[in-house]
Amino acid sequence: MTTLAIVILNYNGQPFLAKFLPAVLATADGHPVYVADSASTDNSVSFLRATFPDVRVIELPRNEGYAGGYNLALDHIRTHYGGATYYVLPNSDIEVTPGWISPVLDLMEANPTIAACQPKIRSYSERELFEHAGAAGGFVDWLGYVFCRGRVFATFETDHGQYDDNRPIFWATGACLFVKAEVFHQTGGFDASFFAHMEEIDWCWRIQRLGYQVWACGQSTVYHVGGGTLHKSNPHKTFLNYRNSLLMLYKNWPADGWLWAKILFRLVMDGVSSLLFIREGQWPDVWAIVRAHFAFYGAVPKLHRQRKVLKQQQITEVKLYPKSIVWQYFAKGRKTFGEMNNG
């Protein structure tokens, strides 16, 4: 029998739980709803127990971010509740819609090689636009830059049905991620050293190397507030994004003899991007990029060991988007996924 566990990770997100959890419960289709609390200090746990008695609350001992937090939570569900066939991991700031679950489950059940899937992610504040974190499915170009159907850099498309299909993608967003439980546990879950940001891209990359697929489901839509736990203006978010991008790329980039040349290029491009922060006087973000680079240098020995293990386990090579989205977007003026694929 197919089972699903709906698992929301929470850290000081009581207002989001109050706002969005009722819709999750109303559309759960009988599936159990868990909230894993990462040692919140805002009375989230007492609020949950008093207001939502049907929610199964998991109290984690500390805040280990998205990656470590979900690893602990899903292992707890497997150990104490018998697990599930699939998990779905909606952020606490996700607004779900009626019928959001069944199209994704039907898709995954019909194709056993699908180990990760996402619905369409639209903006909570600008309802017709795709949202930054995942849009209609993510990709990685050959230089390691990530982008989505519906969102490339700062261009957000209006959703008028152009991505209502079901199709393979490179990565599915952690904002509302469906995963096959067996594969999640088999691979050790997310890389906890990432803490937050890009751990889902790293995991999607790794499972594809093992022969599994990642898909987007165009018949399901949710809305994302974004920045619910760590706002985009927070320099720590800058640090995590820049550091984790380098961690992910070193671990997973194909062994084509150009690894360090591409890493050097990314380091230089990070320096170029820091000029935008300098222009705006955002010096904490500039320092965050510097710290991210030194954190990456310190992690290289561990990353090298991980890279060797992943290479030994690999079943199939994973294809990246073969063009540079930086060149296409800034030099050729192609701002959307459709333009880039038709150009």
Score class of each variant (00 low, 15 high):
residue 1 M to P: 06
residue 6 I to W: 09
residue 24 V to A: 02
residue 26 A to Y: 00
residue 30 G to R: 09
residue 30 G to Q: 08
residue 31 H to Q: 10
residue 33 V to L: 04
residue 34 Y to T: 14
residue 34 Y to G: 13
residue 36 A to I: 08
residue 37 D to N: 09
residue 43 N to M: 08
residue 45 V to H: 04
residue 48 L to Q: 05
residue 48 L to M: 07
residue 51 T to Y: 00
residue 58 I to D: 01
residue 74 L to K: 08
residue 82 G to W: 04
residue 84 A to D: 08
residue 89 L to N: 12
residue 90 P to K: 02
residue 97 T to S: 11
residue 101 I to G: 10
residue 101 I to W: 08
residue 105 L to P: 14
residue 108 M to S: 12
residue 114 I to R: 11
residue 115 A to M: 07
residue 118 Q to Y: 12
residue 119 P to E: 15
residue 121 I to F: 01
residue 123 S to E: 04
residue 125 S to K: 11
residue 126 E to D: 12
residue 137 G to R: 09
residue 138 G to F: 07
residue 142 W to K: 15
residue 149 R to W: 05
residue 150 G to F: 02
residue 154 A to R: 11
residue 156 F to Y: 11
residue 159 D to M: 06
residue 165 D to R: 04
residue 166 N to I: 13
residue 168 P to R: 05
residue 168 P to Q: 05
residue 169 I to K: 07
residue 171 W to F: 15
residue 173 T to A: 15
residue 184 F to E: 13
residue 220 S to F: 10
residue 221 T to N: 07
residue 221 T to I: 13
residue 223 Y to Q: 03
residue 235 P to W: 12
residue 236 H to A: 12
residue 244 N to D: 01
residue 246 L to N: 03
residue 247 L to P: 01
residue 249 L to P: 05
residue 251 K to H: 06
residue 253 W to I: 13
residue 258 W to Q: 14
residue 261 A to D: 13
residue 269 M to A: 14
residue 274 S to L: 07
residue 276 L to G: 13
residue 279 R to M: 05
residue 285 D to W: 10
residue 289 I to A: 06
residue 292 A to Y: 07
residue 294 F to N: 09
residue 295 A to E: 08
residue 298 G to I: 04
residue 305 R to N: 01
residue 321 Y to Q: 01
residue 322 P to E: 06
residue 325 I to P: 06
residue 326 V to D: 15
residue 327 W to N: 13
residue 327 W to Y: 14
residue 328 Q to H: 09
residue 331 A to W: 11
residue 335 K to E: 00
residue 337 F to Q: 03
residue 340 M to S: 02
